[in-house]
Amino acid sequence: MQTQLQEVISYMPEPVLSPEMLVCKDLRKVYPTPKGEYVVLDDLQLSIRQGEFVSIIGHSGCGKSTLLTMMAGLNEISGGQILVDDDVVRDAGPDRAVVFQSPSLLPWLTALQNVMIGVKQVFPGASRAEKEDICKYYLDKVGLGNDFYKRATDLSQGMQQRVGIARAFALKPKVLLLDEPFGMLDSLTRGELQDVLLEIWQKEQITAVAITHDVDESIFLADRVIMMTSGPYAKIGDELVIPIERPRNRKDVLEHPDYYDYRGYLLNFLNH
């Protein structure tokens, strides 16, 4: 099976390569502990092209969330560098929108206001009506067309995460970073939100990086699955291209002849 898959991959037509959008060079992350330094990530190299959807899987505690927060600029980089569109990442910014694991909405604001607070930062020149149109467009896209004025606390967990996705896309970021975005949801809601996410992403073609520990999710979402070795000194262990054509729907992906080969390949990596 392994060789079969290798063949599939090697016979793939050479894709037209878009420019690099997100690059990690010799990336290193060290946490000081009383017993000395704990090296989470070491010598990590990664290059993601514009418009690519990459998912990163690995065992919990391997440092994949650390990697994502470093890309977001929310976590200090101990060594090496991260480049986004050829600019070195120094701190957080709206060009790298983050969808956190918990929805992280501001509970005293409505759904619309939660999206608006970001839109105001990114489009300071736009008129009030234009800004509101942007917010409403994305809230409508994530299926909250009737809930603009509901308070965040009155929304279910799944609906809150929908607002989180709308907020991220409304920033028109260069890179979308998703930190186990559906990890806290039940499997039905998770499936719905994966569909919503892919649908908008298909339209916007934003470079996206999703951290996940769900093998099926990683295949369904991504063009390329990055596998991280377990820490300490975690780095990229392997990667797998998922050439299933887009736009994807769940049924076609599950029935794709190579689906179980991809799945087996990933599980095989995780189990060793």
């Binding site: 600029g73 929310l74 957080a92 709206p94 790298r96 983050v98 956190f100 992280s104 501001l106």
Partner: peptide, 14 residues
């Protein structure tokens, strides 16, 4: 204040 809210503020560069 919840760390998540602070992160939101950082990402939005408030």
């Amino acid at each position: 204040v919840d760390k998540d809210y602070i992160n939101v503020a950082k990402v939005l560069k408030l």
